[in-house]
C-alpha cells in the first residue's frame, strides 16, 4: 500500500537521535503508563455519566424526592411496591410489551424479505438500497409528525386512499383501539430499512457455493431458504431481535409527538410514563424505580434471547 511507503518516509524518523533500545520491562511500563493516560478522559467520563448515575439512581429509587426539597426521605421498598399497584404503570408496561412484540415480528419478517430482495442483482438495485435506508437517517420527531398528518381521519393520505377504494378508514390516533397499531406502523416504516441493511450484510456473508451445491443436489428455492439461509443467518437474526427489543422497549419520541400517551392512555409506554413522573410530577425517587425496572426487564430479555438462540445453535 502506498500508505505504508509514505510512513517510512515520514518526518518522524529524520534527524532523530538513535538511542539504544530500552529494556523490555521499562518499555512495558511506559506502555502501560501511556495506556492509562490515554484512557483517563473516558474513565472520568464513565465515572461521572455512567457509574455515578447508575449508583445514584439506584439509591434514589428507595427514596422520596421532589427535586426541590433539601432532603430525600428514605422509604425503603415503597416505590417498588407502589409500582405494582399503579394501574397506569402496569398498563404502560403491558402496552410497551405489545408494541415491542408487534414491531419485532414486523421487523423480522419485512426486513428479511426486503434484504433478500435487495440482495438480488437487478437493475437499479443500488437505488432501492438507498431509498429503503432513508427513514433511518430521518428524525423520529419529523417522522412522527408527518405520520400524524398521514393518519388524519379526514385529510390524511391513508384515509383518502382508503376512501378511493370505498372503505371508510378508522380514526387512527383518535381511536383508543387503533392508536397503538398506528404507532407500530410508523415505527415499522422507520426501522425496516435499517434492519434490512443489517440482514443484507448477513446474507452477503453466506458463501454462494452452499447454494450451488444444494442446487446440484436438486434443492428447491424453499429448501435453500429453510436449510441454508435461515440457519446461516442465525447470528444476524439474534442481533436484530436483541436490538429491536431494546429499542422498542425504550420507545419515546414517537409517543411524545404523535399521541402524548393518549387517547385515554391507550399509547402510554414505560419511558413516556417515566418521563412524566420525573419531569411533570417531579417524583424523582419513583421515576428512578421505574428506570430500574426497565433496566432489569431489558437485561433479562437480552439474556434470555442469547440463551434461547445459543441453545438452538448447540442442537
Amino acid at each position: 500500500m502506498s500508505g505504508a511507503a509514505e510512513t517510512t518516509r515520514s518526518p518522524v524518523y529524520t534527524g532523530m537521535p538513535r538511542t539504544r533500545r530500552p529494556r523490555a520491562g521499562a518499555m512495558r511500563a511506559a506502555e502501560a503508563r501511556f495506556a492509562w493516560l490515554s484512557l483517563l478522559p473516558a474513565t472520568v467520563f464513565f465515572a461521572l455519566f455512567v457509574g455515578f448515575p447508575v449508583v445514584y439512581s439506584f439509591m434514589l429509587s428507595f427514596r422520596d424526592w421532589n427535586l426541590t426539597s433539601a432532603t430525600a426521605e428514605w422509604v425503603g421498598m415503597a416505590n417498588y411496591e407502589a409500582l405494582l399497584d399503579d394501574e397506569t404503570f402496569v398498563r404502560s408496561l403491558l402496552q410497551t410489551t405489545i408494541f415491542t412484540i408487534s414491531i419485532t415480528v414486523c421487523i423480522l419478517v419485512f426486513s428479511l424479505v426486503a434484504a433478500m430482495l435487495l440482495d438480488l442483482k437487478l437493475k437499479f438495485i443500488k437505488l432501492y438500497r438507498t431509498i429503503l435506508y432513508l427513514p433511518a437517517v430521518t428524525s423520529l420527531v419529523a417522522i412522527g409528525i408527518v405520520w400524524v398528518w398521514l393518519f388524519d381521519p379526514q385529510y390524511g393520505l391513508i384515509n383518502q386512499l382508503l376512501r378511493g377504494i370505498g372503505i371508510e378508514g378508522p380514526l387512527w390516533l383518535a381511536d383508543p383501539q387503533m392508536a397503538l397499531p398506528a404507532l407500530v406502523i410508523t415505527a415499522a416504516w422507520r426501522n425496516v430499512g435499517y434492519f434490512a441493511t443489517i440482514f443484507l450484510a448477513g446474507l452477503q456473508g453466506i458463501d454462494i457455493s452452499y447454494y450451488e451445491a444444494a442446487r446440484i443436489d436438486g434443492a428447491t428455492a424453499a429448501d435453500c431458504f429453510w436449510r441454508i439461509t435461515l440457519p446461516m443467518l442465525r447470528p444476524t437474526i439474534l442481533f436484530v431481535t436483541v436490538m429491536s427489543v431494546i429499542l422498542s422497549f425504550q420507545v419515546f419520541a414517537l409517543v411524545y409527538v404523535m399521541t402524548g400517551g393518549g387517547p385515554a392512555g391507550s399509547t402510554s409506554v414505560i419511558v413516556f410514563y417515566l418521563y412524566q413522573q420525573a419531569f411533570t410530577y417531579f417524583r424523582m425517587g419513583y421515576a428512578s424505580a421505574v428506570g430500574y425496572v426497565l433496566f432489569f426487564i431489558i437485561f433479562v430479555l437480552t439474556l434470555a434471547q442469547f440463551k434461547l438462540f445459543g441453545k438452538q445453535a448447540d442442537a
Partner: peptide, 17 residues
C-alpha cells in the same frame, strides 16, 4: 457493558448533576 444500560436509568442523576 455500558452499552447495555438504557439512558433512561442514567438520565435523572445526569440531570441533577
Amino acid at each position: 457493558g455500558a452499552m447495555m444500560i438504557p439512558s433512561q436509568v442514567t438520565m435523572i442523576p445526569t440531570f441533577i448533576l
